[in-house]
Deep mutational scan, measured.
Amino acid sequence: NITNLCPFDEVFNATRFASVYAWNRKRISNCVADYSVLYNFAPFFAFKCYGVSPTKLNDLCFTNVYADSFVIRGNEVSQIAPGQTGNIADYNYKLPDDFTGCVIAWNSNKLDSKVGGNYNYLYRLFRKSNLKPFERDISTEIYQAGNKPCNGVAGFNCYFPLRSYGFRPTYGVGHQPYRVVVLSFELLHAPATVCGPKKST
């Protein structure tokens, strides 16, 4: 009989979020998941679920829940969905086509923008091939755009693969920082350890 609540607040209220190319993952297990707390949290810009209804989450049990978190621009949030393409979905964070879970995003301009620009948040701009679902690539190898080998030196046709967002408070909404948490639900042939409040007695 599990009684402790799942530590969703640790994920959602973290002081610093990860850059999207180096997205953070927390495994959540052996706890009671009260999703209504999240669902009623006012400032969400997006709360979209795939393969599961957000209002039914509290009735369900899962083997594991993974909480992935990172920061992207407002106009990139739409790429955090199954079957998407674009710089983020291709080179930074890719969801599987059969994704079961929820994508939760909110504007973090007050936290993550600075006058003069916040350059701490990076994304991958160049990559030889697209990421596989949930693949994480933190390499900083110089990207070779031409035929000539770069030998690890940036220059003509040789690019550092990461780019900084440089968030400023005055940017338009599409270019403002958004914090994103992706909850993915794993249902294995194993005992369920993460259940909603109704199922955990």
Score class of each variant (00 low, 15 high):
143 Y>N: 08
94 K>D: 01
165 Y>T: 05
11 V>L: 07
96 P>Q: 01
84 Q>S: 12
98 D>T: 09
73 R>W: 03
32 V>L: 09
177 P>T: 03
21 Y>N: 04
116 G>K: 11
191 P>Q: 11
191 P>E: 14
44 F>P: 11
90 D>G: 04
10 E>V: 07
112 D>A: 00
156 F>E: 15
121 Y>Q: 09
72 I>R: 00
112 D>E: 04
149 P>T: 14
193 T>P: 10
131 L>P: 02
198 K>D: 13
154 A>C: 09
67 A>P: 00
107 N>P: 08
147 N>S: 14
128 K>M: 08
19 S>K: 01
136 R>C: 06
105 A>P: 00
149 P>E: 14
154 A>E: 14
12 F>H: 01
43 P>Q: 07
67 A>N: 05
201 T>A: 13
87 N>R: 13
159 Y>W: 12
173 V>Q: 14
120 N>M: 09
78 S>R: 10
106 W>V: 05
43 P>W: 04
80 I>R: 02
47 F>G: 04
177 P>F: 04
93 Y>M: 01
83 G>M: 09
52 V>I: 12
137 D>W: 00
44 F>N: 14
174 G>E: 15
85 T>N: 09
182 V>H: 00
73 R>Y: 06
114 K>A: 14
99 F>G: 00
83 G>H: 10
104 I>F: 15
49 C>E: 00
19 S>Y: 01
190 A>P: 12
168 R>G: 08
114 K>S: 12
57 L>G: 04
60 L>F: 08
77 V>T: 06
115 V>M: 12
90 D>T: 06
2 I>W: 10
187 L>P: 09
146 G>N: 08
189 H>G: 15
155 G>N: 12
78 S>E: 13
8 F>K: 01
166 G>D: 14
78 S>V: 08
169 P>F: 05
128 K>A: 11
153 V>I: 12
16 R>M: 09
15 T>H: 07
185 F>W: 06
84 Q>P: 02
72 I>F: 01
46 A>E: 15
21 Y>G: 04
187 L>F: 10
4 N>K: 13
32 V>F: 08
98 D>M: 06
99 F>N: 00
103 V>S: 00
21 Y>P: 04
135 E>N: 05
24 N>S: 13
33 A>E: 05
10 E>M: 07
183 L>I: 09
105 A>N: 04
199 K>E: 13
120 N>C: 07
153 V>H: 14
146 G>Y: 06
154 A>Q: 14
19 S>V: 01
166 G>L: 07
174 G>A: 13
149 P>R: 12
164 S>C: 07
68 D>Q: 02
119 Y>T: 15
183 L>P: 00
145 A>S: 12
12 F>S: 02
78 S>K: 12
6 C>M: 04
48 K>H: 08
92 N>G: 02
38 L>A: 05
54 P>G: 07
134 F>I: 04
54 P>Q: 11
199 K>C: 13
151 N>D: 14
186 E>C: 05
98 D>W: 05
66 Y>G: 01
173 V>G: 09
18 A>W: 03
78 S>Q: 10
127 R>M: 03
48 K>F: 03
171 Y>I: 11
44 F>V: 09
196 G>T: 11
55 T>H: 14
162 L>C: 04
133 P>K: 04
27 R>G: 05
122 L>H: 15
3 T>D: 09
20 V>L: 02
140 T>M: 10
119 Y>D: 15
30 N>H: 09
196 G>M: 09
